[in-house]
Computed example of a mutant assay.
Amino acid sequence: MNIWNTTSDFILLGLFNYTKAHLFLFVIVLTIAFTSLMVNALMIFLIQQDIRLHTPMYFLLSQLSLMDMMLVFTIVPKMAANYLTGKKSISPAGCGLQIFFFLTLGGGECFLLAVMSYDRYVAVCHPLRYPILMNWKLCLRMTMGSWFLGAADGLMQAVATLSFPFCDAHEINHFFCEAPTLIHLACADTFAFEYVMYSCCVLMLLVPFSLILISYSFILAVVLQMHSKEACKKTFATCSSHLSVVGLFYGAAIFTYMQPKSYRPANSDKVVSAFYTIFTPLLNPLIYSMRNTEVRGVLRKCMGQCVALSHD
């Protein structure tokens, strides 16, 4: 097999075919992606709008919404453009950027969810020491650390993946450039890199996930000792929202990156990838807004102001 020129474009086979059923699904996915962008932008706006939400917990939530918005922007516009124009090509530079941003945002969200669990642990287990143990300086450092660790992983994998020579078969059976899928097109021994990449994925998933489990183990122990039903209910409402987001994100990520590639078909990969790159960013703010009285209160206040202005 001939080595393919890496300056030429890759071909993304995409998520949908050109049938009526797939066109309908494409419209649904595009609608969900657009709604996701609007809902996450609204969440960031509401948090910035009301001074009562200027706390570390809501700052972290705004960062989660920002990551989700950027993830949708990284994947959906190119997927939609390729489907609508029929041109399924993507340049190596564009492919590298997709890998970088996808892993930066995915890895950053892993660590951000761990930081959010630490915030809930301090708020529930050490409420009187919360301003000290979760001060703004520490919050900003942990948030920047989440972005940095994600970016380091994204840069390493993007550069390493595109450094391999590629074969004649340069069709990527996916709707975006993903390192594990792309590396299977390489005309070189990739065993060592795949092992390192798999190890990085395991660490990026299991280390934050372990911290989340530890945090919620302490939280559960404290909640079970609470005598006030109202305090217990409020704690469960806040923590269950975060656990729902953790379950959605880590469930899809573990299925994708911790299961051997040979054990699952490419179509299931694409469906799961669509779930956590398009659907999950929509569910995250909805879960928090529906279960959070403060966010609902600010939303009602803003809607009331808009109605009052429209009547003036």
Rank of each mutant, 00 (worst) to 15 (best):
I3E: 12
W4R: 14
W4Q: 14
T6C: 08
I11L: 13
N17F: 13
A21S: 13
A33W: 03
F34Y: 11
T35M: 15
T35K: 14
N40Q: 03
I51W: 10
L53V: 06
D68Y: 04
V76I: 08
K78F: 03
S91N: 11
T104R: 01
L113C: 10
L113I: 07
D119A: 15
V124Q: 08
V124H: 01
Y130H: 11
P131G: 09
I132H: 10
W136H: 11
L149H: 04
A151Y: 00
D153H: 07
A160V: 13
S163W: 01
F164R: 02
N173E: 07
H174C: 05
F176S: 04
P180H: 02
I183Y: 08
S210M: 02
I212N: 03
I214A: 03
S217L: 15
F218Q: 05
I219G: 01
L224E: 14
K229W: 09
T235K: 03
C239P: 06
S240I: 14
L243R: 02
T256P: 01
M258D: 11
Y263M: 14
S268W: 06
T277W: 06
I278W: 03
L286S: 02
Y288D: 02
E294V: 08
V298E: 00
L299A: 09
G304T: 09
C306W: 12
H311S: 15
